[in-house]
Design a binder for these strands. Structure first.
Length: 171
DNA sequence: CCCTGATTCGC
DNA sequence: GCGAATCAGG
């Protein structure tokens, strides 16, 4: 993929809106987040808020016989949204960098343990058990490590996958 | 573990 | 100019 004016324009826009490099890469499609970051730097439009301070690093002596196996499972080819000049596609990604301040300690209810969950990032390995009222600010997901390929952590899995007999009883 | 941006450097 | 690899931090 080459950086057409259109793509660069989209990049600038999304970056200005505060989307992360990986999210931008996902929308542009065909590029990695590194590519996006690299481009951002070349365009000299780096500063934006302040995600990870840049205290002038000066380390990099790589090369010299790497030594690592190539175990990078790329996450390319995601559901690339194809509406290009649209503004509508923006909505579904919507990475509101503000609303996260409503996150509060997860252990206010029955959940025994909780995990950091810096923001609402749900992965394949995070418990997706919803907690609280979706309409309330308290709402959040468990976020604990889910068991091997499971949607919930071991705790919530027990609740979610109740034996038929038991569930029948409480009805 | 997941993620973030920053930097370097071979291409 | 480009972006993978790497680094540094959350």
């Amino acid at each position: 993929m080459n950086w057409t004016d259109e793509r660069v324009e989209t990049l600038r826009k999304l970056w200005a809106e505060g989307l992360s490099a990986s999210q931008i890469a996902a929308q542009l499609g065909g590029v990695s987040r590194n590519a996006v970051i690299g481009k951002v730097h070349r365009l000299k439009l780096s500063s934006r808020g302040r995600a990870t301070a840049a205290p002038a690093r000066q380390k990099k002596a790589q090369g010299a016989g790497g030594g690592k196996s190539v175990t990078r499972s790329a996450t390319v080819t995601r559901t690339v949204t194809t509406s290009i000049g649209a503004t509508a596609l923006q909505q579904q990604f919507d990475a509101e960098p503000v609303a996260r301040q409503y996150l509060r300690p997860v252990e206010n209810v029955v959940v025994p343990i909780s995990r950091r969950l810096q923001l609402v990032q749900l992965n394949e390995r995070t418990c997706k058990w919803p907690n609280g009222d979706p309409l309330s600010e308290d709402f959040h997901f468990c976020g604990n490590d889910s068991a091997e390929s499971g949607p919930y952590c071991t705790y919530h899995a027990k609740i979610a996958f109740q034996p038929a007999s038991e569930r029948r009883r409480s009805r």
